[in-house]
Write a protein that binds this DNA or RNA. Structure first.
Lengths: 255, 255
DNA sequence: CGAAAAGTTGATCTACATCAACGTGCGTGG
DNA sequence: CCACGCACGTTGATGTAGATCAACTTTTCG
């Protein structure tokens, strides 16, 4: 049955959440409802405008989006990368005005939905609510790790850490071609790692000289030696929490 | 009626949440239940141990706590300051192991509670659940602003920004003596702003020379010129979301 | 009172920023 | 199909914010 709710290959969100717990038929129905009415957007499209009223919430179905802040001086700081299956404004829409911006990094498919819908899902499907909360907590853990990176790692380590994180996040939910290629420009990296463009170029070069990465013939970065990159930054993946929901967690919330 | 649930002066959590929406009698009962069985802890006490199984969740009733990460090299990066009325491990306890640590910065009173309890509150009191979620979203916004600070502000701006943020957070929930004194050492500041101890000392001096702050006779920093500090970092308080719950938000979640 | 914690100061070093010029691939329009 | 323009990346020279090292003072507290 093509397009059946059980056919998870069509839903990045379902794929992701089913890694935390078994989804039931009703769960798939709710997810499908959230994802109905997707729109395709070109790279660079602005989904959330900083300092403007927050629009409706959304899910990324395909492509990469970017959440970032614009500072008074005109600088940009990237907060996190929104990969397929990620919510946009799940909490943000609670507020009146957006304190950050979101835009599409690559051409993307985005499903916008009314807050009513997600509230309904939370009420009717506690299991699903738990999985979504768990996922949200994981996203927050990524931001916290970015704080640690910006505060206490140098440019070289920071860079390696970002690459490993993206590689692991990608590989976890969908089997990736090897080697992995990341669709990011040096400008994006600079604004993520808090570095200047020039220094990013030089740091990339050093990683290339060490044989850890390669330039893609297309635009993008090819990861040649993931273990080497991990070694560079002393990568500890605890914060990714790549596990199913622990027994204790499920017990507490399942009524 | 002393100690009555309506006597919010005894509960930092109730004070905070009532700034978002009117609490009803039942809400106060739930809050009181969460806060029963508080423990007093000395400064420096470790509440959550990094890489260990996450214990029970808690609320800070009095005092300041600190959430931080320890990095391989032994460095420490402070994630955020937990002021009275803040939850510890509300989401963290979902996970098996803690990816960060929490300890008391000043002598504190902390109420630990079973996850069952908060789950029950969420089920029975949707209004309260909404207020707590809203509060959590605000805390996350603070962390995101820290990312921006670490990535794109220099030491002087970063410092001023931190001071203003703490001052506003304190003043919002309880009227503060003027001028405000912050109970933080230079070591804590260094690990928050991603700077060395020496450089923190020098930056403090510059702020002192500009007449923006003063050293407390006791330990701590006295804020002399809040507007001056705001000017230094181009402070924009949007991200604090110091508002009541917007109409639209309440409507969506109240059934 | 003594020891440890907290803060200060000066000298030196370096990671990263800034400025400026140049290379390279790619898409659009003539 | 070429030309032009633009986004992206590279390279070298120079400047500087902040780190590091080391010695010292002051405050706090048992």
């Amino acid at each position: 049955m093509i397009g059946s709710p059980y056919d998870t290959t069509y839903s990045a969100l379902a794929i992701k959440l089913s890694q935390y717990l078994e989804l039931e038929y009703e769960d798939h129905r709710h997810i499908a409802a959230l994802e109905s009415g997707a729109r395709s957007l070109p790279a660079g499209a602005e989904l959330v405008k900083q300092n403007a009223p927050y629009g409706s919430a959304a899910v990324v179905l395909e492509g990469w989006c970017l959440r970032y802040k614009l500072l008074p001086g005109g600088d940009r700081q990237v907060i996190n990368f929104l990969l397929p299956g990620t919510f946009i404004g799940l909490h943000g829409t609670l507020f009146e005005t957006a304190d950050h911006a979101v835009s599409a990094l690559t051409p993307s498919r985005i499903a916008f939905f009314d807050s009513q819908k997600i509230a309904q899902t939370f009420r009717e499907r506690p299991r699903l609510a738990l999985a979504i909360s768990w996922d949200h907590a994981r996203e927050e853990a990524l931001i916290i790790e970015r704080v640690a990176s910006l505060g206490r790692r140098d440019a070289y380590e920071r860079f390696a850490h970002l690459l490993v994180e993206l590689a692991l996040r990608l590989a976890w939910r969908t089997p990736q071609q090897n080697p992995i290629t990341l669709p990011i420009t040096q400008a994006v990296i600079a604004d993520t790692l808090g570095l200047s463009l020039v220094h990013v170029s030089r740091t990339i070069q050093r990683l290339r000289d060490e044989g850890l990465i390669e330039n893609s013939s297309q635009r993008g970065i090819v990861l040649r030696d993931l273990d080497g990159l991990k070694a560079v930054c002393g990568y500890d993946e605890t914060y990714l929490h790549r596990t199913r929901l622990p027994e204790k967690t499920r017990k507490v919330f399942e009524n």
